[in-house]
Every structure is written in C-alpha cells, then in structure tokens.
Nucleic acid binder design. Structure first.
Lengths: 338, 338
DNA sequence: GATTAAAATGGAAGCGCTTCCAATTATAAA
DNA sequence: TTTATAATTGGAAGCGCTTCCATTTTAATC
C-alpha cells in the first residue's frame, strides 16, 4: 500500500503539499496539484484512515446503537441512514445493543464505550432499549449523540421522536368516524412509555366523545405476533360485543387479521382492525390494513442530518416536525349509512 | 481521554508494560499487572483504536457490502452477523451498494475501496449485485473476502450459498406429491442466475414425472409484490386451468394470496400457493404459507466465521452444507384422496 | 554467596498522517 | 531594479500505540 511518502517522492514534492492536495485545503499551485494527482493515481494511493484519525481526531464514521426491537435490524430505515451517511462520505458503524442488554448492568454503557473507542464521531441511539440514565451519563463525556424515536427531557434538542399520544388518538378517532363505539384493543407493553402513551391517546379519543371502553376488552400485548394471536383468541372468547380492534402495532394487527379469519370471522365485515406503524407489509395484507403511519424515515433522516451538522460543521436542512398520518385502507368497515 | 502514557505514569511503569497488559501478551508480573489495571480503571482508559490499527494493521472490523435487494438492510440475518462479530470483539462496518450501482461503472469498486481504506480486515459480499468480474478484481488485492448467497467458481471456497436448483425442484415435488399437475408459476427475474436456476429446478421436477408445464402459465416476475400481483391477474385472466402457483419468492406468494382472495378465489381451496424463502412473514399469512426454507442464517453464520478464521487466525467451527427444506403449512391443498 | 538462566521491564523507533512554521518563490508596488 | 507582500513549499513534530531490544530484577542452582 502506497503511503503519502511514496506519493511525495514520486511527485518530487514534500509530504505537506501532498497532504494539502488530499484535503483540499491550504494553498498549492495548480502545477504541483497536477503532478501530485498524477502520482496519486499512478500509485493508486489511498490515505490511511487510521493515521488520519490519529492526528485529526475525526473518524468520518457515525455509530448506530440499536436493538432488534427498535427495528434497527429489520427496517429499510437503516438503509436510508446509511445512504445519507455515505452520500456525505461518512461511514456507518453498527452495534447491536441486544447483546449487551442481557448481561451485566453496565453492558449497555460498555457496548457504547466500545463504539466510541473503535472510533466514531457521533452516535445515533435508536429506540428506547437503553435507559435514560445511561444515555445521560454517556452524553456527559460524549456529547455528539442523537436519539431516534426516543425522548429525554434534559437533551430534547438531540431527540427525534413523534407524538405517540396523538397517534393513538387519531386511531381512535378514525374508528369513531366510521361509527364504531364498541371497541377492543390489544396494546403494547405497558411497561414501556410508548406502549402506555399510544394507549392513553387512544382512550382519550374515545373519552372525548363520551365513550368508555369496557376494561375487559383491553388486552395487553407486546407488539409480537404471538401476543396478538393470543389477544384475539381471548377477545373472541369473551362475551362482550365489539366491532373493532385497535392494535398496538401492525404486527399485532397482522396476527389479528389472520387469527380472526382462520376462526371464521371476516375482516372488516365482522370485525374491523386498525393498526399502528404502517410497516412495509401493511398495504399487502388482506384486507389492506388501515393504520397510523409513523414518520420513521423523516425522523431518521433528520436525526442523521442533525448529527452530521454537529459532527462535521455541516449545514444540512432538517425537519423538526413529524406529524402522524392516518392511512385509510380497507380493514375498517364504515358503520355509518349515509 | 487518557493515553497509554498517562496510565504508565500513574502506575509508575513503562508504556511497554501497559501495552503488554492491555494485549495480554508478553510477560508482566502479577504485581505490576495489578497496579496497571488499577490505573487503567482509575483513568477510565480506553486504547485508541486508530493508533493501534496504525501500528498493527489490524482493524478489528469486518465490512459488509450489500444491497437492498440482497436483503442486507431488511433482514434479521444482519443482526445475526453483527451478533457473531461483536461476540468476538469485532465491529461491523456497513456499506450499501445500492448507492453505487446507479453511478459510474466503477462505482461498486469505489465503494469497496472506500470500505477498505476506511479500515476493515475482511469483507462480506452479500448477494449478487456486484459483478463477478469486480469481485475477482477486488479479491486480487484484498483477498480476505467471503461471498454470501453468491458463487464464483474461481474462489468457490470463499462462497457460501445453497442450491437454488434443488430448492426449486423440491417446491415442484411438493406440488406433485399433493396431486397437482396443472401448475402455473410466477418466477424471479430471468436475467439473474438464481431466478433462472430455481425455475429450472422447478421445471425439471415436473419433467421427471413426465409433466410438461403450459408455457402460457409461466409468467416472469422479479420478486416484487407488484409483479406478483400483476402475474396473478394475468394468470386468472388466461383461459388455462391450473390448481397451483409456484411463486419465485415469498413476497410474490404474499401478493398472490392477497390478490387471489380479493378476486374471490380461496387459497388453498381454489388455488394452492407455494412460496420460496420462508421469510419472517410466511407463517403469518392467511393461510400460512407452504414454502421452501432457505438456510440464510446458517449460511451467514458460516460466512462470518470463515472470515473471522481467516482474518484473525481463529478456529471457529463452521457448517459447509446448506440443505434446503420444504416447510409444509396450509397453502397447498391435497388433491389426492386416500 | 556466587553464578547462571529466565522473567520482567523501560523506552526508542516507527506506523502514516496533519499541522505548523520557517524558508523559499512569485507577484505587485514603488 | 528594489522592496514589500502574498503565495507556495518542505519537512519536523507529534498523534497513541506496538514491537523490539537492551537492561535490570528475580529465581534457581551450585
């Protein structure tokens, strides 16, 4: 592998000039620039990043800390992030937090320290699988961070998230608009903030119309297919009547649809389903799923850009408002005759 | 950030000893080891990876070159790879080849060079979206590579792939076993090798029983939902009778099921569907999809491990046989009365 | 206690780069 | 032409580490 010395020697110049050409700063005459570029090409010279980072303290790399449940490893959003980074000449170093969460209490911090010492200029924390406490601790000595789909009051300007409450609310509203009043739901995990918040929003939308949901029609899930399946089974075995189910996420909705139809119920004729996320499958289900679209990609893009700006003094534009949108497809029946 | 000098000073030893402790090689007395470790902890010292790499030429990082269509950014397999790397203290540097493929002809190579100069000890090439020619070229100057789900004769020992032919064959066989003889198919893209091969295997399974498929019942797809939808629509508008469709992948099968049912056909009562991949959705479809399970995870694990062995002189065990398996669920009707 | 071999230790050299400054060269003004 | 100023240039220093070797310390043996 050719080094900067080789280039300098071949071009008959000093290493300083070569460095100036590579980095495009400092003054070099057009003539020597030409000579140096030729030498670079002839030697197929590529600057050694370790040496560069050692001196400059810049790594041109952004770390991503995420977990499976954050969707990090199962989402086109990762692609989008990577795309944005690469198009600015940066790299993407990934760490899966799942590994650490099992182990000792400091495991999350350790895995982050690992990421830092490996060399990245900033970190995107994706999801809520790391405690606020840990993040706050890390942020003290490594401030170039950004939270995606998570929110911590003390560093709110570094957070990119949407309003779970509003999202839940709009799901409920849609059901109401279509004339449903007897509504069941299969929620997310109530131990998580977002699980609670989206459910609250949902309940409040009903409350605001004076509708109170039968507590027996609320079953707690955890976003998994299997819990969705169990939830539906439980609901259809209860004796309470309902015409619609609000599912805590699309995965749950998927489970609901398939479980209902294999138990002889038709969606939406017998029971309507509304999901939450608008994941990549939602429109492909049968029937296509009405759901709340969460602006994941917009948030992700803004998060990366904000970090890019901070780490590399860039000035990329970024959104800071991430409205949720109700996507009406065919899984909710209109009960209102007009 | 504390450096090795700080540690040496605090511990009252030479930097050589500190280095020996960090790397666990060379001899250091238990007593000084203790002192040094305390200093390391007190200073919260983390070795600087750039400096280490600069000297040692090791990066403790494996690059992944993949594209969206390879599933790199949409698959739990990535998580598995990352997991394996991290549990051996290595990192995972990702590059999305999609970006490059659009641009100039050398874009793929450039993006790989980028990965190399950024610093990785080996690269996993995931999928077939980079030409054999390019890979062969890269392998010459950067031999620590491994191909996942791809095969190039000249470096077959670096390739981890399965038998598309057999997979296609077994799909056909299953349909035959269930008594289907009038079979349609919606294939993959015939411009790709795997698209062709799995189709060949499928046709041969029929041929071997003396069954010839009606050419009008073969429609070329490209693994996308939309093409699957179009394909089904085309098939049901044709006047030729068929009882089953072999879909080139599960995505296509998903499209087929949803399109058929929204056109009044019942799966599997009217038409049977068999898929290919056994992706994460397959078992959740309604009806649950019978499909050919492709051993992605096994291949990926073997690929990573093989690379780990090569790059770091490890001796991890690895599978080298990746049999395909038919997963029978409920989307294929049994036509044989017994 | 003396001798020898083995273990432990300190630190210089050097990895490839950026940055800085002193020295040189070109350019403009007088 | 001379002088002042700006642009260009070379290369030493130093980033934090590993590796090597010369030196010192320890342990083992007589």
């Amino acid at each position: 592998m050719a080094t900067i010395n080789d280039v300098a020697k071949l071009a008959g110049v000093g290493i300083g000039s070569v460095s100036r050409v590579i980095n495009g700063k400092g003054s070099v005459s057009e003539k020597t620039k030409l000579i140096i570029n030729k030498a670079i090409k002839d030697l197929n010279y590529k600057p050694n990043n370790s040496a560069r980072s050692l001196v400059s303290k810049k790594f041109n790399t952004i770390g991503i800390w995420g977990t499976e449940s954050a969707g990090t490893f199962n989402s086109s959003t990762l692609k989008l992030i990577d795309h944005e980074l690469i198009s600015h000449g940066k790299h993407c170093l990934i760490t899966n937090g799942d590994l650490s969460s099992k182990e000792n209490p400091n495991a999350a911090i350790n895995s982050v320290d690992d990421l830092i010492s490996k060399g990245c200029d900033g970190i995107i924390f994706w999801g809520t699988d790391i405690s606020n406490f840990d993040i706050a601790y890390i942020e003290k000595y490594f401030p170039n961070i950004v939270l995606l789909n998570n929110k911590i009051e003390s560093i709110e300007h570094k957070c990119f998230y949407y309003d779970h409450y509003k999202a839940g609310y709009s799901a409920g509203q849609h059901l109401l608009d279509k004339g449903h009043t007897k509504i069941a739901c299969i929620t997310g995990d109530f131990r998580t903030e977002d699980g609670r918040t989206r459910h609250e929003g949902f309940l409040d939308s009903l409350n605001d119309k004076g509708i109170v949901i039968n507590p027996e029609l609320i079953v707690e899930g955890n976003y998994s297919f299997i819990k969705g399946q169990e939830g539906v089974l439980h609901l259809i075995n209860t004796n309470h009547e309902f015409t619609a189910i609000f599912c805590g996420n699309d995965q749950t909705a998927m489970a609901a649809i398939s479980t209902l139809s294999s138990n002889g119920y038709s969606v939406p004729n017998d029971i309507s389903i509304i999901g939450y996320d608008d994941n990549s499958i939602a429109s492909f289900l049968s029937p296509p799923l009405s759901t709340v679209r969460v602006p994941f990609d917009n948030m992700a893009l803004a998060a990366v850009r904000s970090l890019l700006n901070k780490c590399y003094n860039m000035e990329l534009s970024l959104e800071n408002n991430f409205p949720v949108e109700l996507v009406q497809r065919e899984s909710v029946k209109n009960l209102i005759n007009n």
